[in-house]
Amino acid sequence: MSTVILLLVTGLGLGALYFLIASGLSLTYGLMRVLNFAHGIFLTVGGYASWWIAVRLPIGEPWRFLIALAGCMVVGAIVAAAVEVSLIRPLYRRHIEQVLVTVGLALAFTALVQGIFGPDPISYPAPGWTQGVTQLAGANIPNSRLLAIAVAAAVFLLLAAFLRFTRWGLIVRAGVENRSMVTALGIDVQRAFTLIFALGGVAAALAGALGALYFGNIDPQRGTATLIFAFIVIVIGGLGSFTGSVLAAVVVGLLQQFINYYSSVYWGFSAAGDLSVVLLLAVVLLWRPQGLLGRSVG
């Protein structure tokens, strides 16, 4: 029983990281039909920015970690907004060029990080509490997973409130449904898109810092590696569906964790979880091509 609880919480923790990176990806696609293959760099930026700040701050925990977290969010927002304004905006509606540029940026940025900080993972100065465990129904749950779940839940509630109760949120929800009609009401959708891009950068940067706690280090490749699963999440959830990305992130995280564990125990094969996620993607695409909560086209 304790194993199931442990897998449940760690699976939710993994799903929390997926949600943080997938939420921005889903909203930017929903609003402007932009598939940003460079979204993973915001996660990498977040991880390295929080590490850079944390190792330089001569103060104790928890303030050091909290300031590093806040700092990485600011850096994530700035980098995301800069990418949108300088690279995505000039290529709006030129989908092939968007793919080429964002893939190129992801590769170049990873190489740049490797050039500056080295190709190997760097140990992360995690606060003591996050390295401990909490007893839950007989299971020793790593606190880093609980933190990831709590932060992702907070981000989910904040983003949901933003979408539900603010004028910008109203513009985004309407823009996801019919962007050109929003502009025909006199609204500059491009500004909303920059804002959403920056918010997506913040959420992904948070995933970078929390992922550093989760894995115990920062890694130049983590952004691109996690992005693959984030893409699977938004396709399963339904491209452009914010709620769908939450649901799919939880499903993918849990499935991956449970299958990885049991396949490792019974068959000595630990990568079956990743394979099962791809199979799930195939099943969903065959059964419901628009994703779990996506709208069908046509």
């Binding site: 109203l170 309407a174 449904e177 019919n178 009609m181 502009t183 025909a184 009401l185 609204i187 500059d188």
Partner: peptide, 24 residues
Amino acid sequence: MPTHQIVRLGVGYVPEEREIFSEL
């Protein structure tokens, strides 16, 4: 001018297919 600036000059639009936001 982009569309949103044209509209802000005082141009209202009632589109052929209504194009209301069905989920709002």
